[in-house]
Simulated assay, not measured.
Amino acid sequence: MSEHERSRTMPAPPEVVFDQARDLDRLDHWLPQDLHVRPEVLPAVTVHEDSTGQDAHALMRADPDQLRIEWGTRDDDRYAGWLQVADSGSGASEVTIHLSFFDDAHAPGGDDIDTTLEDSLQRLAEEVRLRTDSAAG
């Protein structure tokens, strides 16, 4: 089993960040670029991975009261993850993404995962910035 976690501060209220992160129509804007989520009957989703050309049946749940999104494969126990948004004061938020791979044979290399998590948080921060800029202007 391997676990990976990255955090980033974003200059927006936690509710704004959470709403951006859970928007199913905008997930492709911040998730790893080769992953695409297609909603089914929620919480069921299908995740397509461009690099393998395969689809994975997954579950994705968003809890607005806890500002938390959780996901994982539903046909097997390959991976699970969560995103948590917390208020860090002064109108800013701390966003943490955590991934757990239960079978190391299916886990990407540790450096690859860490880089991908950092890139995803950067893209989410940019999406949040665009949203807050357009709301202010």
Results as ranks from 00 to 15, higher is better:
65 D>C: 10
38 R>V: 07
132 T>Q: 12
12 A>I: 00
60 M>G: 01
103 D>S: 09
5 E>D: 05
52 T>C: 11
5 E>L: 03
96 T>I: 14
99 L>F: 10
56 A>M: 14
10 M>P: 07
110 G>E: 12
8 R>Q: 00
33 Q>M: 04
74 R>H: 10
120 S>D: 06
11 P>Q: 14
109 G>H: 13
116 T>L: 08
1 M>L: 13
8 R>M: 03
108 P>V: 06
80 A>R: 14
123 R>Y: 09
41 V>K: 13
84 Q>L: 15
26 R>W: 06
9 T>R: 06
126 E>V: 11
90 S>W: 02
19 D>V: 11
72 G>I: 07
27 L>T: 09
43 P>D: 13
122 Q>R: 14
42 L>H: 05
21 A>G: 00
109 G>C: 08
2 S>Q: 15
113 I>P: 10
94 E>L: 14
114 D>K: 04
107 A>F: 05
16 V>D: 07
136 A>G: 12
100 S>H: 14
40 E>L: 01
51 S>T: 13
15 E>A: 15
68 R>N: 00
118 E>A: 07
74 R>K: 12
103 D>Q: 10
129 R>D: 00
44 A>P: 01
16 V>G: 04
81 G>K: 06
13 P>A: 10
79 Y>S: 14
54 Q>Y: 10
92 A>S: 12
43 P>Y: 09
82 W>P: 09
22 R>D: 06
80 A>Q: 13
54 Q>K: 14
55 D>W: 10
86 A>G: 10
4 H>E: 01
31 L>P: 03
39 P>D: 03
121 L>Y: 08
47 V>G: 07
43 P>W: 12
29 H>K: 04
80 A>N: 14
43 P>T: 11
107 A>N: 06
81 G>P: 06
10 M>K: 01
62 A>H: 12
94 E>D: 13
51 S>A: 11
58 A>W: 13
110 G>Q: 14
130 L>N: 09
34 D>F: 13
73 T>V: 05
18 F>I: 03
133 D>H: 07
124 L>Y: 02
8 R>H: 03
33 Q>W: 10
39 P>Q: 02
118 E>D: 03
101 F>T: 02
91 G>E: 01
69 I>G: 11
49 E>D: 04
8 R>P: 00
77 D>L: 08
35 L>I: 11
110 G>D: 14
30 W>D: 03
4 H>P: 04
115 T>D: 15
93 S>M: 02
135 A>W: 04
68 R>I: 00
114 D>W: 01
91 G>R: 08
114 D>G: 03
20 Q>S: 07
35 L>D: 03
14 P>S: 01
131 R>G: 07
62 A>W: 08
32 P>A: 09
56 A>R: 14
66 Q>T: 13
62 A>F: 09
122 Q>S: 08
70 E>T: 15
56 A>L: 15
70 E>Y: 01
18 F>R: 04
79 Y>P: 11
59 L>F: 15
15 E>W: 12
34 D>G: 09
8 R>Y: 04
137 G>Y: 03
99 L>V: 09
